[in-house]
């Protein structure tokens, strides 16, 4: 068990959560709760892998994954924004639909053979920095670096630009945004689409970089739901989302590594001698999600922070807002 290796792998697996979480942040900032992340990620993972196999080009796979997941997300957008239906139920339906479609279209894909993966690389000079260099900048997939770029960009876009201001207005007080001439409906469709594309990117990152292959529903194993939970922990802020995502990634890797050695901190490793104890380790990411939710919710109460005020409510022109 090498702590650097665990953190290094944690950053790689955490990138998946990062994309999905930031995507959901965009959608929720615009006031649309999309619980379909898990389904969209499955669609993305399946599409990415499938297209990469048939074309031989992983980048086309990534592109197709983002596009298909984005299109699927528009079903949710149409139902909740135009038809004004309940966002919770519609998001659940999207999860079922995404899982079902990806299972049907992904039939036989698990035995389809190998695929050329997205490239990995080290950044010249900065990878020489002790510890930090080897954790963050050595031998990582290109997706990981895209993730690094996305964190400050997403933060800057939401907090410091005019379109970002419009985005927040639409999620906080759509009636006022509408009065200022911002097209609330159009904005919401757009950001649900962006959320869908990022969820697709997260899925493709799994199947083409982090854990290559298509293992039906086990491909994502609930990571889409963890992402939805992380949004609350992150208080709708991309930087906090990154911290949470990488921590979760490291935890997943730690669980794998802790079962390997015969000795753990100089003692007989109980997980090595009783392999089925490992199931308790498998519970950890899910239990940890609940803990993180409790922390996030308590903090929100204490700091009087909260979800975007219009989150979960359809905007109906002419009705009293909020």
């Amino acid at each position: 068990m090498d702590i650097v290796v665990i953190l290094q792998a944690g950053v790689a697996t955490g990138t998946v959560l990062l994309f999905a979480t930031v995507g959901e942040i965009f959608s929720e900032r615009a006031g649309v709760l999309n619980l379909g992340v898990e389904g969209m990620m499955l669609i993305g993972a399946m599409t990415g892998f499938s297209v990469a196999i048939s074309t031989g080009n992983p980048w086309l796979g990534v592109l197709a994954a983002m596009l298909f997941s984005g299109i699927i997300s528009q079903i949710h957008a149409f139902i909740t924004i135009t038809l004004q239906a309940d966002q919770v139920v519609s998001g659940l339906a999207l999860t079922f639909l995404g899982a079902g479609i990806s299972l049907v279209l992904g039939e036989g894909l698990s035995k389809a053979g190998t695929v050329s993966l997205l490239p990995s690389m080290s950044i010249p000079i900065i990878s020489q920095i002790p510890i930090i260099g080897s954790i963050f900048f050595t031998g990582q997939s290109i997706m990981v670096y895209i993730g690094y770029l996305m964190i400050p960009l997403a933060w800057y876009y939401i907090n410091r630009t005019r379109p970002g201001l419009h985005l927040r207005a639409v999620g906080e007080y759509p009636a006022a945004a509408d009065a200022l001439g911002i097209n609330v409906f159009q904005m919401r469709y757009l950001y649900v689409f962006i959320g869908g594309m990022l969820a697709g990117l997260a899925g493709a990152t799994i199947s083409l970089a982090v854990a290559p292959g298509w293992f039906s529903e086990l491909t994502t194993a609930g990571q889409g739901w963890i992402a939805v939970g992380l949004v609350i922990f992150a208080q709708w802020d991309p930087v906090r989302a990154a911290v949470g995502s990488y921590a979760f990634g490291a935890l997943r890797r730690l669980i794998l590594d802790i079962q390997g050695p015969m000795l753990l901190f100089g003692f007989d490793n109980p997980f090595y001698y009783n392999p089925y104890w490992g199931f308790f380790l498998q519970m950890l990411p899910y239990a940890f999600t609940i803990v993180v939710l409790v922390i996030g919710s308590r903090e929100a109460i204490r700091k009087r922070l909260g979800a975007p005020a219009a989150l979960g409510n359809p905007y109906i022109r002419g009705e009293r807002g909020l």
Binding site: W225, I232, F279, F280, I290, L293, S297, R298
Partner: peptide, 28 residues
Amino acid sequence: RFNVNEIISSLMLNYIAIAWINFWIFGV
């Protein structure tokens, strides 16, 4: 008590339940 979103917490407990019965049928 804590206003924790029940959608996510109840869903996470699904995975924990599966691991829990796996522990019993793989081992004990």
